[in-house]
Design a binder for these strands. Structure first.
Lengths: 218, 218
DNA sequence: ACACCAGTTGACCAATTGGTCAAGAATTTT
DNA sequence: AAAATTCTTGACCAATTGGTCAACTGGTGT
């Protein structure tokens, strides 16, 4: 990070290589943790999937817990970043629609990460309890106040902001966590591009109508 | 069940004892599987929680898989039974409201079971793929047709029935699977009776309005 | 009293697991 | 080119795991 930088210019060298290796490991780990859960995942499996010997994996991540923690924290960052679109719009219709789109896109592009997150929370959040208590709590309370303001301004129906947020989280996350069930009910095939669009549209339609917003605004 | 019944009268004896033991084991197993996942659960832990030696546990359930399978199948039965309330009502308002109530009650009363189910599906449904492909598929298609009929009759908005069902599942299940997160956001306390009522009411309010049903019907 | 059988259990086992380590290969720095 | 640092890896280890087994217990029917 801050070692003597003899050469002020580029150098594709060591640092990038290390980051690339770590990224490859983290991607393998995410998949394995998602498929097998923390308890069912083995370092050997992760090493195999990343294409390197187990001992080497332990060089980059000293323990299984450390590796897992990193995976979970990465997901949480993605999750939080998506949450930002909530603020970049100025009304409930745009904000909630954009938030649904963003979260549905995460479910589509990062199903493994979503599952790891769900699994972590389901098991009592042993490693990210801090995040839940601070970052997530603050974000949630902030957004709840925004929603209450919209309600006070008559821009949407009076609903309990927390339960609305839970519904948004639950519904969008469902498409990742339960994608296997959805696939099975879809004749064994993954949702096509059009079906994903329909899913997004359906979720937006029902929720926006559910809080008294005319979706033709969008 | 149908062994020679020497005594035609009662007899609290052996069969009941066996069932009681199995029930106790299954309850312990459900908790442990929910808390640790299949991979993280150990027969020793389940035995401890059930209050009997591990070897005895293996007398009732020969393998970890067999025990797990039984737990999952039990949950699925509860799930399906709740689904029946969907049919006992004659209109979309009553049916969906009753279904939400029933599923919310399951989330409240059987959070461990719900988590085991979620975990099973999330990991690709290794042991209940049959159920997904047959029983669940048939139930879902049947209900989707009912919803389509309601739409055709003008009794609710035109929405994609599958995505409506997914939203119902996702939202109600969320209160079980993510109860830890909800508790954390609730100041570390479980939802009170009143809060559960508000949760149910909020879910019903948003979804019913979302499909164009005036909830004051109920 | 006896045999019979479901249930109980501590001791044990082979396999797997997360993690270590020392020796070597690469790469960078001097 | 040599020294120093970073990476790589096969072999290994202690602990844990699911599962077995033979001996034991206790109730039931005869």
């Amino acid at each position: 990070m801050n070692l003597p930088a003899k050469h002020p210019s580029p150098r594709p060298g060591q640092k990038e290589r290390r980051l690339a290796r770590e990224k490859r490991i983290l991607e393998a780990a995410e998949k394995v943790f998602a498929e097998a859960g923390f308890g069912g995942a083995t370092m050997q499996l992760i090493a195999d999937m990343a294409g390197l010997p187990k001992a080497n994996l332990h060089y980059y991540f000293p323990t299984k817990e450390a590796l897992y923690r990193q995976v979970v924290e990465n997901i949480f960052q993605i999750w939080l970043r998506a949450a930002d679109v909530f603020d970049s719009a100025d009304g409930p219709a745009e904000a909630i629609a954009a938030y649904i789109d963003a979260k549905m896109e995460i479910s589509r592009r990062h199903p493994a990460g979503s599952k790891v997150w769900a699994s972590e929370v389901m098991h009592g959040a042993p490693v990210i309890q801090d995040y839940l208590e601070h970052t997530l709590t603050e974000w949630t309370e902030g957004r709840a106040r925004v929603i209450e303001r919209w309600i006070a301004e008559g821009r949407m129906n009076r609903v309990n902001p927390h339960h609305l947020l839970y519904m948004l989280w639950a519904t969008t996350q469902h498409y990742a966590d339960f994608n296997h069930q959805i696939e099975t009910l879809n004749g064994g095939k993954p949702l096509s591009d059009e079906q994903w669009e329909e899913a997004k549209a359906s979720v937006k339609q029902i929720i926006l109508a559910g809080i008294g917003i005319d979706a033709s605004d969008l």
